[in-house]
Design a binder for these strands. Structure first.
Lengths: 139, 139
DNA sequence: CAAAATACCTTGACAATCAAACAATACTGA
DNA sequence: TCAGTATTGTTTGATTGTCAAGGTATTTTG
């Protein structure tokens, strides 16, 4: 009973650590920092969002986001746009170059997913997706 | 076919991100930095290991590990011991206080695992563990 | 034994982060 | 309406995490 949970816990940690290492390695190749890549993922997923929203989603202060977006802008990956309604706010969007980073990284995620699941049957993939979906609702 | 993989990829990323946020939040409460906690987990799991091994497992340079272990030693969480055979090497071990950190953090991991899996049947937990185990071998 | 390799430490530099203070803008309630 | 308050983003100063490069002590190798 408890043993099963202990085992699951151990497997989750190992899975998490391995993805973490993989991500760190892959991001290093891209020339972006892990934080920057994470920001690009969030911005790309949202299409456009305010600095404040980006800060909240990344669990950082707006001061930190200002600096990070400065860096991403300098690299030509994102662009600041004024918010038409609320002039205090600033919208961040991906440039074409930013979208390239985003797409390339997504390709890598897909490749990893494929490799990870290569030893699972279609049925097992189904169960796994279902379990992950349920767990994602739980947290 | 490809859609299934796309969905799995998305669920994995979401799962990873949520655990990441959870970990960050939980570690903040402990008074340790994320890196320090990670080091404690690795040291605790290995019982004792050399600075070099710690560096490799964390994907950091030995210079960084020196500073980090200095910090952990200052907090009383770890202790340096000389290596009896190879006198270039230094072994790092957890002190009693370090073991407390380790155990408390493990308790939190178990609690999270329990919460995550609370909406899964015993059968589903079995499938999940099995899938994770297979994936962990793949990476 | 001499040369090369290894393990750890130190130093100097840089990036990420936060808290606090600030400016511009929006909201609110009397 | 408008005075006070809240919100958004930026700046600044300090701290921390990290690396690369160079140094020292020790081990391995030829």
């Amino acid at each position: 009973m408890d043993t099963k949970l202990e085992y699951l816990c151990q497997q989750i940690i190992e899975f998490y650590d391995k993805i973490s290492s993989w991500e760190q390695e892959v991001v290093k190749e891209s020339g972006l920092t892990p934080s920057q890549m994470h920001a690009i993922e969030i911005i790309g997923h949202a299409e456009e969002l305010r600095m404040k929203e980006l800060a909240e989603q990344m669990g950082l202060t707006t001061g930190t986001i200002t600096v990070m977006v400065d860096g991403l802008e300098k690299q030509g990956a994102v662009q600041r746009k004024r918010h038409e309604v609320d002039r205090r706010s600033i919208l961040v969007v991906l440039t074409d170059k930013g979208k390239e980073f985003f797409d390339e990284h997504h390709q890598l995620h897909m490749k990893l997913t494929q490799e990870l699941s290569s030893s699972l049957s279609a049925k097992e993939v189904g169960y796994l997706s279902s379990a992950l979906t349920k767990m994602n609702l739980q947290i």
